[in-house]
Amino acid sequence: MSVRVLAAGDHFVLNRLLVEAVRAETSADLEFTELTLPWPVEPFGRVAEVDEASGTEDELIEALRGAEVCVTQMAPLTRRVLEACPDLAFFGVSRGGPVNANLEAATEHGVAVAFAPGRNAAATAEHTLGMIMAAVRRIPQTHADLHAGLWRGDYYRYEAVGPEIEGSTVGLVGYGAVGSRVARMLHALGARVLVHDPYATDLGGVAEPVPLDELLARAQILSLHARVTPETTGMIGAAELAALPEGAVVVNCARGALLDYDALCDALDKGHLYAAACDVFPEEPVPAGSRLLTTPNLTLTPHLAGASKQTARNAARILAGDVARHLRGEPLLHCANPEVLGR
């Protein structure tokens, strides 16, 4: 008897990639159905009790009828969806964390939720390095001026130029899959790398572990790579930005909740910071009229640090591995609610 699988992809992690990856991992008799969600053509948002989701509960319930397995990136696994889909046993979220899944309700219903950690680590690390370079060399601003017909020689004034990465002290808050890659890149470029991460035990000889207050006092460039927890939410605010050396650069390609953006704009307006670059924001999309859109020396990208073809393929491949383990009755490698596995 075939197993029904719903591929609920979108315009980044395509259904084609999900189906191909699952078929490559297992020889089980599978029957696929597909649902294409609107992200990123339409922004994700809150759906019922879950965050960063795409599509509606109703369309997912309809598409899941009779399905045992669902592989997706953004579909909303809510309590209502779980109650309406009794055949569902495995829900795979092809992203670093299953924020669009109600884990408590999934566990109550005996549904294992898998995810894909590290899928975009290389892409995000590379984007972070690009944002650091863009900020310290003011690449977006000079590009825009040239396109407007302005040859700005004043950018060459000593007071206007930024630091080199070689020889600079760079502080990283967080040393996971992304932060560790950024550290290696910066070390190769000749930077002195400081790391604050209470969970990091081996920095591989490329960085120096320090307390946060020491990192802030020494870092000419600060880059954030921590996960959002109650402890890290808002961890870089006005006091922390003021503790940075005059002319420092701040980069955030992790999560908007880590940083006080009003305080960041204040520090840029006052000239305490030389520049900043951000890929993530407290509200996405950034609303019209936001200070972020008019604050000087602030480089912005629309939450696409992890966007690469490899990321999409990695996401499908990592998830497909756990689909195969589920179908074989084996423990999952990346399960967000492992307590459900013993049932």
Rank of each mutant, 00 (worst) to 15 (best):
A53C: 09
L77K: 09
P86L: 05
P98N: 11
A114I: 01
D87E: 15
E104N: 10
R65M: 11
C70A: 15
L82R: 04
V69T: 02
G110M: 07
R79Y: 12
L60S: 02
V113E: 04
F115P: 00
A116I: 01
A89V: 14
A75P: 00
L103S: 06
V111F: 04
D58Y: 06
V50R: 04
E108W: 07
T107Q: 13
R95E: 11
L103I: 12
T72K: 05
A101S: 14
A63N: 03
S54M: 00
P98E: 11
F91Y: 12
G97D: 15
T72F: 06
F91I: 05
V111Q: 02
A53T: 09
P98H: 11
R80Q: 13
Q73K: 13
H109P: 03
G45K: 13
M74T: 15
T107V: 12
L60F: 00
A84W: 01
G96M: 08
P98A: 13
C85F: 07
A63V: 06
A67E: 07
D51P: 05
V50Q: 02
F44L: 15
T72Y: 07
E104G: 12
N100D: 09
L88S: 00
P76D: 12
H109W: 08
A84Y: 04
P76F: 10
G55R: 00
G96L: 08
F44G: 13
F44D: 14
E83V: 10
V47A: 11
E108G: 07
L64W: 01
A48Q: 14
V47G: 08
E83T: 11
L82M: 10
E49R: 05
C70N: 09
V113P: 01
A116H: 01
R65G: 12
L64H: 03
A48S: 15
T56H: 02
V50W: 00
E108I: 11
C85N: 09
V113T: 11
V69A: 01
V113H: 06
T107W: 07
V111L: 05
V111R: 01
V113F: 08
T78Q: 08
P76S: 12
R95P: 06
E83A: 13
P98G: 09
V69E: 00
A63F: 02
E57M: 03
G66Y: 01
D87I: 12
R80L: 09
V71C: 06
L88N: 00
A63T: 07
R46E: 14
V47Q: 10
G96E: 08
E108Y: 07
A116L: 03
A48H: 14
V47Y: 08
A75E: 05
S54C: 04
A63C: 02
A106E: 02
A89W: 10
A106H: 03
A106D: 01
A75M: 03
E104R: 15
S54T: 04
D87Q: 15
T78Y: 05
G92Y: 06
A84I: 06
M74P: 09
V47H: 09
P76M: 13
A114T: 07
G92P: 04
P98L: 11
E62W: 08
A53E: 04
L77P: 04
C85R: 07
E62L: 10
L77E: 09
E62N: 10
T72Q: 03
E62G: 07
E104F: 10
E59L: 03
A48C: 11
G92V: 10
